[in-house]
Every structure is written in structure tokens, then in C-alpha cells.
């Protein structure tokens, strides 16, 4: 897998609709917070923070963006506020502890395999390590009994992906039509779109 991204809707930006009826004040407020009030690190230690950022860079690489969508700060914010998602599998510790254990374990894996910090590994080595974690092939004492794949998929990847695809730039990238209030959509059929949606997929034009 290369790190090239072929954008299907280049030039489409949902923020261009900011002044239109596709946006209401509630959504404008939420977006404004997301875009301008990126939180400072408050929960993770400096080491954890370095590992986390390196992990995020591999889970959602953004070499094409001069200004990458911030992900780690939002994870940190949620943990600082002690937010949970409603489910704690009994094999898992509490959310905060799960993150601390998980990041430390990834770091320990990197040290064990390559005697290097995870953040200093090459992208290929980082990916290989993460893939092993995802597939549950990274058992070890540093996981403290927490199932690595459960942490990877249900906690870490899930949260990273949710944060990324909540950002307007990511929504623009995939040609999402929203936000949509008060104005929704009129044309619902296949290959039909309203003037305020992304024009059709470049790869098909």
C-alpha cells in the first residue's frame, strides 16, 4: 500500500456552504469548535503523546495535507474529560487505563522488536507492528492481560476513525453532501445530485 491518495472530489469543500442554508447555527458552532479550538495535551504523558501521534499517522496517514486533521488532541481531550463509550468489555480495563496500557505496549513491542521507539521506526515497520496488534499476534506481558486486537479495533482504531471522519476536510474528501440543516436534499436517485452536493466523482467523469 502506497501513501498516495487519489481524491475523488478534488476542489469540493463543504465549508464553502458555510453561509448557505445547508448550515444552521448549531452546526456552525460545533464546526467552529472543531476547527479552531484544538485542545492542548492534558491527559497523556510526553512519551505517550509521541507514540500516539506516530500511531495516528499510520492509522490515518495524511501526507497529502499540508495541514493534517488533528486526531491525537481529541483523543486526549476525551480522556481528560473521562468520556467513555458505554461499553466496557470485561476483558478490558477502564478507558483511560486501556489507552495508557495500549500505548505503552505498542512502545514496548517496538523496543522489543527493533530496540527503537515506535515513533522512530520506518513506516513499514510501524505498519507491520500495528497489523500484528490488530490481528492479535502481539501478545505479551506488557499488555497486562488486555487483548491487543480488542484494544486496537474497538478502542483505538474506532476512535481515530471517528475523529478523522468528523472533520469537514475528511467529509469533503469523500464527497459527503452535508451538513444538511435546514436544507436537506431533493434529488435522491442514483447518479443524481443537488447543486449543493459534490459534483459527480471525478474518476467517472
Amino acid at each position: 500500500m502506497t501513501d498516495r491518495f487519489d481524491p475523488p472530489y478534488p476542489g469540493y469543500d463543504i465549508l464553502a456552504k458555510w453561509d448557505s442554508v445547508s448550515f444552521d447555527d448549531t452546526t456552525r458552532r460545533v464546526y467552529a469548535d472543531r476547527l479552531k479550538d484544538v485542545p492542548e495535551r492534558a491527559f497523556f504523558s510526553e512519551t505517550e503523546w509521541r507514540t500516539l501521534n506516530a500511531v495516528c499517522d499510520r492509522l490515518i496517514p495524511q501526507p497529502d495535507r499540508p495541514d493534517p486533521i488533528p486526531i491525537a488532541p481529541w483523543i486526549d481531550r476525551a480522556l481528560a474529560e473521562n468520556r467513555t463509550n458505554g461499553t466496557r468489555y470485561t476483558t478490558m480495563p477502564q478507558m483511560r487505563e486501556a489507552w495508557r496500557t495500549g500505548l505503552a505496549a505498542i512502545e514496548a513491542e517496538a523496543q522489543e522488536r527493533h530496540e527503537t521507539a515506535f515513533s522512530d521506526l520506518t513506516a513499514e515497520r510501524q505498519d507491520a507492528l500495528l497489523r500484528d496488534v490488530s490481528n492479535g499476534d502481539a501478545e505479551g506481558p506488557h499488555w497486562n492481560g488486555m487483548p491487543p486486537h480488542r484494544f486496537f479495533r474497538s478502542v483505538m482504531l474506532n476512535e481515530v476513525v471517528r475523529i478523522y471522519y468528523a472533520h469537514p476536510a475528511a467529509l469533503s474528501e469523500i464527497g459527503f453532501g452535508g451538513p444538511a440543516a435546514p436544507r436537506g436534499y431533493v434529488r435522491l436517485g442514483a447518479d443524481r445530485m443537488d447543486p449543493w452536493e459534490a459534483p459527480s466523482d471525478r474518476r467517472r467523469r
Binding site: 500500500m1 491518495f5 481524491p7 492509522l59 496517514p61 474497538s154 474506532n158 471517528r162 474528501e173 469523500i174
Partner: peptide, 27 residues
């Protein structure tokens, strides 16, 4: 989008640029 992205990531176990490319097909 986020709902579907987590479905793809969880069901297919993919991440990285592969996931972004898969999500490029969202529409």
C-alpha cells in the same frame, strides 16, 4: 461517514491509506 468508516475498519481490519481509499468509495 464515521459510522461507515468504523464498520469498514472493524469488519475488514484495515487501516492506513487503504482505509482512506476505501472510504473514497463512500458515495
Amino acid at each position: 461517514p464515521a459510522d461507515f468508516a468504523t464498520t469498514v475498519a472493524d469488519a475488514e481490519g484495515i487501516f492506513g491509506m487503504e482505509l482512506r481509499q476505501r472510504m473514497a468509495d463512500y458515495n
